[in-house]
Computed example of a mutant assay.
Amino acid sequence: MPIFDYKCSDCGKEFEELVFNRDECPPCPECKSEKTGKLMSACKFKTGGGAPDHGDMGEASSAPSASASSGSSCAGCSGGNCATCG
């Protein structure tokens, strides 16, 4: 079932509505005005059960990776280049 985002021209309320006819613009739930318009919305979907993958758009991790470090890694740390590593 398609759910579309709408905005009321009279009161400015933004709302979502399940519609069967994609050309239909439902009345505003706030002020009941018929002057509503469909908004452009981003496609949203989820696959699997894990955390969302943001790809290049997500924030970069601040933790250093072991492969990016120049020293050897030990079980005591993940930095790979500390005083306890030989």
Results as ranks from 00 to 15, higher is better:
S33G: 12
F20M: 05
T47H: 04
C43Y: 05
G48H: 01
E34S: 14
D23G: 08
T36W: 01
M1K: 10
S61G: 10
C11I: 13
S33C: 08
D5S: 12
S61L: 06
E30M: 11
T36K: 02
E59Y: 04
L18M: 13
G12A: 14
H54Q: 06
A68R: 00
A75K: 15
C82Q: 03
C85A: 03
S9T: 08
S41T: 14
G71P: 05
S78E: 01
E14W: 09
G76I: 15
C74Y: 09
S67K: 11
G12Y: 00
K46P: 01
P64I: 07
S9A: 13
E24S: 11
C11A: 10
F45K: 05
C31S: 13
G55V: 07
S61Y: 00
D53W: 01
T47Q: 11
G79L: 07
A68N: 02
C28L: 14
S73T: 15
S70D: 10
E30V: 10
E16F: 01
G80V: 09
F4M: 04
K32E: 11
S72M: 10
G50N: 06
M1G: 07
G55H: 12
C82H: 10
R22T: 14
D53N: 02
E17F: 04
F20K: 12
F45I: 11
E30F: 13
C8H: 07
P26Y: 06
A83E: 07
E14N: 09
G50E: 05
G86N: 12
D10A: 14
E14S: 05
S33H: 13
C82E: 06
T84N: 14
G86S: 15
C82A: 03
P52V: 02
D5I: 02
C43A: 13
C11H: 02
G79T: 01
G48E: 06
C25G: 08
K38I: 14
G71V: 13
K32S: 12
F15I: 03
S62D: 13
A63S: 01
G79S: 12
G37L: 03
D23A: 15
C85M: 07
A66E: 06
S70R: 10
T36R: 03
G58P: 00
K13Y: 07
H54T: 07
S73Y: 05
K46N: 08
D10Y: 05
A75S: 15
G86F: 14
S70W: 07
C74D: 08
G80T: 06
S73R: 05
R22H: 13
G58S: 07
G71R: 05
K7F: 04
S41K: 07
L18R: 05
A42F: 12
E17I: 06
F20P: 03
P64T: 11
G58E: 00
G49V: 12
A75G: 15
A68S: 12
S67F: 02
D56R: 02
K46V: 11
G49D: 05
